[in-house]
Design a binder for these strands. Structure first.
Lengths: 213, 213, 213, 213
DNA sequence: CATGAATGAGCATTCATTCAT
DNA sequence: TATGAATGAATGCTCATTCAT
């Protein structure tokens, strides 16, 4: 029923097993919708279209399944290439980055991942830490690297590019992310995002643009 | 702090019953440490130093107990008066506010509340919404009001004070809150807070200070 | 232990205490409506208008309270004097008895008592046995005594008056009591009772009337 | 009665699963002995020789398990074919029916079913009503049909055969069923049953036998 | 004597996990 | 390997009973 693109029958331990992917896809939905505790292995099995027993063939227990999903999620996010075209000026690049970033973070499942991982961080600190590092800090480092390049190019004047990157990323979320994640408002529209990101870029550059020499 | 107008020993239904407080104090710890689902009523009873049955004398069920705690937490936060001394200049005031704000948000239990409520927001949207409104949006409105006053005083030039308030609050948390809440780093020291807040204030004013006339 | 025959304010152990009656009245309602297990001491206390603690001043535990109620109920039933006027003929007397009997047994609470006691009979055999003896067998003996008198008077010809009494009582309930007690039909009207009782009396006398000498 | 078209070993949802039967058999005992409220799922699991969890694989909850048992009990009773041989005279048939009927109703578990269902009838009216209809009324209709045939054959003279059937059935239980169900006397012996049934048949026919033409 | 807050054993129910097939 | 029936510990919650006031 499921297309089996490679020849081997995907035994346990093979991280690329189609079954393994299938399970993770189903489990992801359930975990993100219901949270770690709210998700039952029964529900996950149903969502994944496999039997409960099969879950335990591929994953030692619920924790490990969850960790694997967060891990994959993290890596997927990490692969997300933000396009910092050096040919464009900083303002244009920052706006493009801000829009792309916000759309990820506020897309129907983006908030859920943050919420779900944050919720479990106290009980599973490793999971929290790695998610932070691979998703949030990773993006921050990407932006920081771009800023550093712009500083070196003489376009920007920033002493702490990591901090500046974090400041920009956080400003982009102002008035949008928190109400969304606390269920006080629905996910923001593209227009709302544009307004907030533009304002963030303006404020950012007002402080960090290199003075005309 | 709460006026206690009658002398009687707080029977059931009295929101100021000492037992009720005792339960909420114990339950708060357990909920914040373990999350809503991770906290068992047994554990809560033990932490509160009462029997399981007593829990149900004061709270109809686990949800209601949780809601009561978040409610109280929200109100406590809401009462937090940030001191915007009009005699001081904006930079000093913003720095003082930023420090006070960060210390609340990153104090050992501050992050837990945010985390715990955020985690349950999907299943208990009312709880999430009210927490957002009473804690986060409330503080934002306080700061926005201050900014508006400074704009009217000609010290600042801001077209959207609510957005600016959110931008400032979010910048103050840059590099501090997220690693803390995801358990990637411990709660920041006063020194770390000072550095980040000062940078935020500088960037904020670089963009929003009224041009010298 | 000390005989407390007169004026005092009804301390514990005095079976005629007003409080005791008050409790029994409230408890009766709850027990009969909800059954032994369905009735909670809380509900009983509320229905009786006393505190839960007071219940235990007058009754050692729930079982004893229930037993006391069934006991009183039994005695009340037992006191019910069916009027066997010797001046009337057997048919008239039997019809009058049948109507009176059915109205007791099918009155809104009559069935409940039977049901409630029957339900608990396996777990509290003494209660069941005494209820049977004081209510059902007692009435049967009353009727049997009447029949014996009529036999001796030459009006009836019955060899086993106890059995005959039981036969008559049971026939009077035919098509009425069982649907009522199983909730298949509402309590019967006086008209329905009349029809069934008259039929029972006719059948009874067809078999047991003494042949004209 | 139910067509069993497949051979498989009765998975969940199959009403004829062996496990399902095993559970119902164990649960029946516990319910009948202890009543609905007195029976705990723990006890039922032990009596059925399965784990508590397994109970919930086959039955959604305690109510449904109970209902299933009463339903099965009802159908079993309903299947009981009383043999009304048209070749025999009415007296013989009535005696045979009476004996068979009494032995069902007073067999060690017969009274328990009546008692248990009656006890819950107030809280589960559907269960009570269906039990009445399928067990008591069903038998009554069977007997009534027989009586009608005898009336048409000119052997009996009865104007209301349903009532007559109920009268006969109830008379057969006189002095036997009530003491038994109230735990005042043990289940009657065959001899005791014979005496009471014969008396009932005599009385019944004295009133309802068609006059010799 | 009367109270009602407090208790904790007991309940029905769920669910992560195992294992015979 | 894949299954899903079976498990039993753990959960939220109730309630008969106690006892300090």
């Amino acid at each position: 029923m499921v297309a089996q693109t490679h020849l081997s029958i995907a035994p346990q331990g093979d991280d690329d097993s189609a079954k393994r992917h299938q399970i993770m896809d189903g489990a992801r939905r359930v975990f993100m919708d219901l949270g770690f505790d709210g998700a039952s292995m029964n529900e996950i099995a149903r969502a994944a279209g496999v039997s409960k027993g099969t879950l335990y063939v591929y994953f030692a227990d619920k924790n490990r399944l969850f960790e694997a999903i967060v891990e994959r999620e993290s890596l997927d996010h990490g692969k997300k290439a933000f396009n910092f075209d050096p040919a464009l000026d900083a303002e244009t690049s920052l706006r493009a980055f801000g829009r792309a970033y916000l759309e990820i973070v506020c897309r129907p499942d983006g908030g859920s991942a943050v919420r779900t991982v944050m919720a479990i961080a106290e009980r599973m600190p490793d999971v929290g830490r790695r998610f932070y590092d691979r998703v949030i800090a990773h993006t921050m480092r990407l932006l920081a690297a771009y800023l550093t390049a712009r500083v070196e190019a003489g376009e920007l004047a920033i002493d702490n590019c990591e901090l500046a990157a974090a400041q920009y990323m956080r400003m982009c979320q102002a008035t949008l992310f928190e109400p969304y994640v606390f269920q006080a408002k629905p996910a923001p529209s593209k227009e709302q995002i544009a307004i907030v990101v533009d304002s963030a870029a303006r404020l950012f550059l007002a402080g960090y643009r290199a003075p005309k020499s």
